[in-house]
Write a protein that binds this DNA or RNA. Structure first.
Lengths: 351, 351
DNA sequence: CTGAAAGCGCTTACAG
DNA sequence: CTGAAAGCGCTTACAG
């Protein structure tokens, strides 16, 4: 058998004789010629086989297989004004939370043939705005964004482009689409829990200080306030989270308030580091110090002691947000503009 | 000021009167009319400003800003046969190793304006083949793939497409491009280390069992063999890695060989779970049992005890592989076909 | 069920 | 430094 290239040249008489720009690719036209039908018919047979007769269908499929035809998305995007591309913006990929969210998105859109363009904003609103802008050139069918952007300029741009957008994690006002849960209530639940467990001097450590973290903190503080406690000592830093940082922040916290008997770590990575630091310092958890994390990452359930935390529906957030977006893209109008997926306080040995 | 849409309609006299397919988008033509030049000139001014006169440059920039012009990548891809898209295939995103590799790739290609299409193969060669095939329709300028695919059918497809591919992590034969390090030698280094530390009955636990894991194992076994030891007890499972699994595998290992005094966990997640399991079982690490992990994930340096492991150059693998690919795309021919970035055994408290 | 024409929004290849 | 023509490989909108 000849190579495809040779075969093609033999069959394509360089029609017209004008200046061509041969790409070397097998095109719809090659398939059409091979199957003895028009390009339109091949296009139909490929997009929706029920649109053509069985015999044509077979011939086209055979030609596609034999020539090794691969459709050119750029061409179909240009002609149809539909890219089958969905842009997903997340603040970080090192954070397992967003990776699972992406998995949810992927699992939802995969079957429909959509592909994902993943952007990492690095928790920066400016970067988020830049990325939204940049990705517009791909003519995506929709945007899925974790973390609200405050820039109105970008919003106007997006609105003008007409590309729909669904927010993930943040529950927005009802004039926008969003899927998430209440960070504030989750923080509140943790505060209540610590108090119920008898914590007298709870502390709070947090990193990154993104809006979601600050909402958790607000809920947590409200719980303390309602119980008649003051906010207690807090150690905050804008640095990115890591187990190492968790250990450092805990040490800092203890140096400021040695009688601290409980600590809410704004996420599980910090909690893991705090736990190891306690082991190193010989502090008994939870007897001397209770530890709470956030997210319920895989290690939380098997640490020693196991870590009390809040299980967040991150996979579901991605899946449901994608489902909502797909419906909007298809012209439907979802019943709810905001979907609250809730959360679950998982009480374990560390409190 | 009018909306862009209104302005556009006023300026565009629907030339020809033929059937148009108005997309509502601002196009190069709109910018050209606004700046009083041809579309070609606008195209040049945008791609390489030095190609046009200063005054034209300014007018074009002003028009772009005023109309909010966003180039259509589908159109430029189709016309230029260059997509500025690079496909990256990784086995998993839940594995921090590959996320850091992606970060390296991103940091390398970002400045050149390339965008990434990220595919998750889930450690499946079949899925990898499917994805390579599927992504070909985006006419990517290059492929970056972690994990070798054995399917020849796909290789032929790729070769026929002419899209260059660089392997990451696996150092391939010299007729292909690759950037990575020797998993085998890394495993060997661990074996030697455990023996040097006086381990008498070392065990091995592993999950996923991807090719890289098996190469580490092979190197590890060679070290034992050279020291005159038998391979010792091994507990292997195809399940995906997790800290929970690490604990379970360790228990399994100890039940089979209670006198085991060291364990090589094929990655840090497993090692973390094993460490916690030891704490739970009251086994002193390293006195009663030495633990070695692999990858040097962030928690390894702060665990209690800190975990001995092998630091892998995953970020650099992504960065250098991307750099190699970019050069190939630009028609250059890198001096080396395979780049070995090495690894580092990091000895800590757990051994 | 099938097809000829026109167009999507850019860039290449020429020409001046 | 600038531009008119043609083309990239598909799909839309008609027509039969």
């Amino acid at each position: 058998m000849h190579s495809n290239g040779a075969e093609k040249h033999a069959e394509k008489p360089n029609s017209g004789g004008g200046r061509r720009r041969p790409s070397g690719r097998v095109t719809l036209e090659d398939v059409a010629r091979h199957a003895q039908v028009s390009t339109m018919t091949v296009s139909r047979a490929l997009r929706d086989p029920s649109l053509v007769s069985p015999s044509v269908r077979e011939r086209v499929q055979a030609a596609v297989a034999q020539l090794g035809y691969i459709p050119n998305r750029a061409a179909s995007t240009l002609a149809s004004a539909r890219s089958k591309l969905i842009v997903v913006l997340v603040p970080s990929l090192s954070n397992a939370v967003f990776v699972e969210t992406l998995a949810g998105v992927q699992d939802c859109v995969g079957p429909s043939g959509y592909q994902l363009l993943i952007g990492n904003t690095g928790y920066s609103p400016e970067r988020q705005a830049e990325l939204l802008q940049a990705y517009l050139s791909h003519a995506p069918d929709g945007f899925l964004v974790a973390g609200i952007d405050d820039s109105n300029a970008v919003r106007r741009h997006l609105a003008a482009s007409g590309v729909p957008l669904v927010h993930m994690f943040d529950l927005t006002s009802t004039d926008e689409w969003s899927v998430g849960f209440s960070q504030r209530r989750a923080g509140y639940a943790i505060g209540k829990h610590l108090i119920a467990r008898g914590a007298r001097r709870p502390g709070f450590i947090a990193a990154q200080l993104d809006p979601r973290t600050m909402q958790r903190r607000a809920g947590y503080r409200r719980a303390l306030r309602e119980a008649g406690r003051d906010p207690g000592v807090e150690v905050l830093t804008k640095e990115p989270s890591s187990p190492a940082l968790g250990g450092a922040l805990l040490k800092d916290l203890l140096s400021r308030t040695p009688k601290c008997d409980a600590v809410f770590c704004c996420n599980d990575d910090l909690a893991l580091g705090a736990l190891f630091e306690c082991q190193r310092l010989g502090i008994a958890v939870p007897r001397e110090l209770a530890i709470v994390g956030f997210n319920d990452l895989p290690f939380a359930a098997v640490a020693s002691p196991t870590i009390t935390t809040v299980a967040t529906p991150r996979y579901a957030v991605g899946f449901e947000a994608a489902r909502m977006l797909l419906r909007i893209v298809d012209g439907e109008v979802p019943e709810q503009r905001r979907i609250d997926l809730g959360f679950e306080l998982v009480v374990r040995e560390s409190t």
